[in-house]
Design a protein around this nucleic acid. Sequence first.
DNA 1: TTTGGAATTAGACGAAGTCCAATCCGGAAC
DNA 2: GTTCCGGATTGGACTTCGTCTAATTCCAAA
Lengths: 142, 142
Amino acid sequence: MHDIHFNRDSLAETLRAHGINPTHQRIEIAYTLFSRREHLSADQIMAIVNERHSETSKATVYNTLNLFLEKGLIREVIVDPNRVFYDPNTEPHYHIYDVESGQLTDISASEVQISRLPSLPDGMVAEGMDVIVRVRRAKSAA
Amino acid sequence: MHDIHFNRDSLAETLRAHGINPTHQRIEIAYTLFSRREHLSADQIMAIVNERHSETSKATVYNTLNLFLEKGLIREVIVDPNRVFYDPNTEPHYHIYDVESGQLTDISASEVQISRLPSLPDGMVAEGMDVIVRVRRAKSAA
DNA sequence: TTTGGAATTAGACGAAGTCCAATCCGGAAC
DNA sequence: GTTCCGGATTGGACTTCGTCTAATTCCAAA
């Protein structure tokens, strides 16, 4: 289903394929994201990477995530102003966000049918579309 | 088209109708948002409010915006982690975000047809759905 | 006029992310 | 194996956005 494999050698290949020089830190960060396939924030990633072997600085984590973003290796999910998530899944899909727990879940693109798109302002091209369904636990059956 | 009028007396009424005690500062902040019908950030609002008469503190601006949010008087638009906008339009609608200029534009709900909605996890209710189309200026015709 | 609770305030604080100058590293050339 | 060079990484200072807190002010009711 994906062309990204999760051992560090294949990850190095994947990075190169995206024009990214595969350093130790970059491979560890990629490994963290792609082996878990979860939505992680920068500080979660830093914590995970550092509880393993290499010590990786905050600056490097942010540099690397921004580099991955630029190169299209990952996506950014902005649901809460003080919690930016990074998503290793770059296939078209949307999100469900639990506003109480902060839990973020994927919706495959096929589950949402968007049939009419707005016309864009002249000279503008769409770069992507984010769809976020905000949910919360239902009050006991009314 | 709206039931909100833009002189300060009617705004006081509107606030009361939403269960908000209409103080000077709250009326000024509401006036700023509703008379302009723009997407403004907290610091833009603070700047506008303070260039008029009353001096309003940062804490009050944030308190008030959060109160308005809670009471459903305004909406929050999260498009960029370091740029939260407040939107005086609470009718269902979506947004176009120019990732280069930061410009945020409304799309009326009727311009987007979403025909299939994902099934939500058990016991969860949707609180709202955000749709953001990210656009950028097209490269010169290729 | 007094009074009590809500609203506001200034400024300290906290969290997330950026910046910068110094250091480190790893591969290419020898 | 050394040397060398430019990119990568680093710690830590810094910025920005927003929250918190304790003290003050405001207003409406008595």
